[in-house]
Amino acid sequence: MALTGKEVEHVAMLARLKLSEEDQKKFGEQLSAILDYMKRLNDLDTEKVEPLAHVLPLHNVFRSDEARQEFSREEMLANAPLEESGLFKVPKIM
């Protein structure tokens, strides 16, 4: 199941990756190979298998609604490359 160049380009755009033509071809082949491998699942008979939403045999894990502060602003901003007046500073978006 070969991905088209356009599909590879679209996926790259969604991931904000700039691919050279060469990369696009290479990743296109790799992605296609992965999809082909996964396609083998289609050959299995899943008639009697319940759809699975989660791999752990668990449900309803909750916390109670109690607020507390566990980190100071200084700690939370400590790893930010840029910061200004207590805010994360990022490149402009438009």
Partner: peptide, 12 residues
């Protein structure tokens, strides 16, 4: 467990 209170100082 962070508070949801409106109007706090940024990133507190």
């Amino acid at each position: 467990s962070c508070s949801t209170e409106f109007g706090a100082e940024p990133n507190t």
